[in-house]
């Protein structure tokens, strides 16, 4: 069965008034039910894409369709399916929490009685029920983030766009938000996520697109991208200190300090040989960890060359 495209972007371009070309012809398709990561360095064009999809930024040219509805031709049908959690807090901080949700539902044509019922469900789900009568300005940063998620869900959107939803929240809240997002994705909501936490994208997302300087430079399944990584850096913590960098055959090695060694291993290579060499050198290992996040490494590989070119221009 052919899956419907949740989002289809064709040759999307955006040039700001100051002449800066933020998007240089973006083509992107996201399947219904996907958990999609849109990554890129600062200023790459992520927020511009999100802004155009959400009708907050006027595009220069190109087409966007949401679940088959053209955003220009049928804005009502297209927008009805979208829920948005923006990067910056954009609710009225002088309104009570519950009212913010009820108003949001009202903008989508949900009547007030039904909106109050939905607000109760979402506020309870996101652990904000006790705060429903409080002014939004009194909430903590993490609560404000959760409030924006609850608000975005009030009209039961089929697509949820989250622009750096966990920025500035502590790890505990971040993990609980991940679990919540995974749950709603499993229930059928298509999720599009931009984040600076690459671990977040790796944990949550099935598909990934990387944008840089207004151009999509990678668009594939997360697994496919991760399989491109040809080496990993292991950090070995030693039981006893050593003075000099040991010779470990063909393995590139660096003595970080007297009790920490960094060793690079090729993808698929057995670790047994490495441990044999370490034993031969009388090096006792206390613990071992993968030094870098895998996606982070790939991201840097993809994005850094173009950054260097930009810097040399």
């Amino acid at each position: 069965m052919k899956t419907m495209k949740a989002l289809k972007i064709k040759n999307l371009k955006k040039t700001y008034k100051n002449g800066f070309q933020a998007l240089k012809g973006i083509d992107l398709e996201i399947k219904e039910g996907d958990f999609f990561a849109l990554l890129g360095p600062n200023g790459a064009g992520k927020s511009t894409i999100i802004g155009v999809i959400c009708s907050l930024i006027n595009k220069s040219s190109g087409q966007i369709s949401i679940l088959g509805h053209d955003l220009n031709q049928a804005p009502h049908e297209a927008k009805q399916h979208l829920g948005v959690v923006p990067q910056e807090f954009n609710f009225n901080v002088f309104e009570p929490v519950e009212e913010i949700l009820v108003n949001q539902a009202g903008y989508y044509g949900v009547n007030r009685a039904e909106a109050f019922k939905r607000a109760e469900i979402h506020l309870k789900q996101l652990d904000l029920w006790d705060k429903r009568r409080d002014m939004a300005q009194s909430l903590s940063g993490g609560m404000k983030r959760r409030l924006m998620i609850a608000r975005a869900l009030m009209h039961n959107p089929k697509i949820l766009i989250l622009d750096e939803p966990t920025a500035g929240v502590d790890i505990e809240i971040r993990r609980s938000m991940w679990a919540f997002l995974q749950k709603i994705n499993e229930q059928g909501t298509t999720i599009i996520l931009t984040t600076h936490y690459l671990e977040e994208a790796e944990q949550l997302c099935k598909q990934i697109a990387i944008i840089n300087q207004g151009v999509i430079i990678k668009n594939c399944a997360m697994e496919e991208l991760l399989s491109e990584l040809d080496s990993e850096c292991l950090e070995l913590h030693l039981k006893t200190a050593i003075e000099n960098t040991p010779s470990l055959g063909h393995y590139p090695v660096r003595l970080k300090n007297q009790t920490t060694l960094e060793v690079e291993i090729k993808k698929g290579e057995s670790l047994n040989t490495l441990f044999e060499l370490l034993t031969l050198n009388n090096i006792n290992i206390e613990s071992i960890r993968n030094k870098s996040n895998r996606l982070e490494q790939l991201f840097l590989n993809l994005v850094t060359p173009s950054k260097k070119i930009q810097e040399s221009d």
Binding site: L56, P75, A78, K79, Q80, E88, N90, F91, Q104
Partner: peptide, 10 residues
């Protein structure tokens, strides 16, 4: 910025 609530909606 809560004008965005209106602009995003249909």
């Amino acid at each position: 910025h809560h004008i965005e609530e209106l602009l995003v909606s249909p």
